[in-house]
Structures are given as C-alpha cells and as structure tokens.
Amino acid sequence: MRVTVTINGQRRSDEIEDRLLLVHYLREVAQLTGTHVGCETSLCGACTVLINGKAVKSCTVLAAQAEGVEITTVEGLVKDGHLHPVQEGFWEEHGLQCGFCTPGMLMLTTDLLSRNPDPSEAEIRHALDGNLCRCTGYQHIINAVQYAARKMRETRKSA
C-alpha cells in the first residue's frame, strides 16, 4: 500500500507493507534514526514523535494510520540552525546521559509546553510518566523542561 505523510515539513509518499509500524517507517524508510525503539509496547516513550503537534508513541501506530498527517521528529526541532528551546534546556541542565530516551523526551516536552507554558514540577512529573529514563533519575529532565518553559515564555513576551 501507499502512504503519504509530511515529515519535518517535507512531504513524501512511499510504497509500504501494510503491517509496517510508523517507527520503522521513520527509521528504515525515511532514514530518520533519531527516533528510537525502546520497548515496542508504548511503555517507554523512546519512540515519541509529534503527529499534528501531539505527542504519539510511534511504535504502536501503523505507518498506514499516518496517512495525510504531519509528523515532527527530533530531526525537525532545529530551526534555521538554532536549537529549539527544549533542546537547549536539556543541554544546559544535563537532562540526558546516554541519550537514548532523549528524542522521545524532547518531543513529549514540546507537546507539553505547547499545552501548558508554565508547568509546575508536579505537572511535569505527571506529563513525563509515559516516558522512561534510566540514567537521570528525572530531576535534571525536570530542570530542563522548566528551563525551556522559561525561555519560551521570555521569547513570546519579547515578540
């Protein structure tokens, strides 16, 4: 079957097997390996991408179901050579160690901050519950999310 999607602003159309998972479509067909496979059961969140702006675990979505949608992956966060504030936050606050969960964390955070520009620590912890990190114990990730939120609020204010 054929699927047509827009990934990081670029439209593409591919002939695929019906059963192909979206995460494998992104990684194997579109060659975007920034999105990771951590559990294949939507429990770890390493495969999180944005579909039409909403965080979705791409390991339990068929590529076929993505027909016509807009997908953003970690590769699509950098704009005009500048890091996204969420990326900046994770770098500044040591929000990653091995980096494997990070793309999913970044996409989840992007979604969270689009809905809630000033989340409390409790709200951030709750939002992160679908994304596992084994390295950081989450505290630096929470700091990273807060950094990004601050930065995005300031940018909005000055705009």
């Binding site: 390996t33 590769e75 793309p103």
Partner: peptide
C-alpha cells in the same frame, strides 16, 4: 561545564547500533 556529547544526542545525530 555542560556536556560536549549532547549536541549530537539532542538533535537525533547519535549513532546507536540499530542506526
């Protein structure tokens, strides 16, 4: 000092075995 490993890892440019 913030990590020198991070720019590649936060931009999807890390290469793990499956990549």
């Amino acid at each position: 000092v913030k990590r020198r490993e991070d720019p590649r890892l936060i931009s999807g440019n890390g290469t793990y075995v499956d990549d």
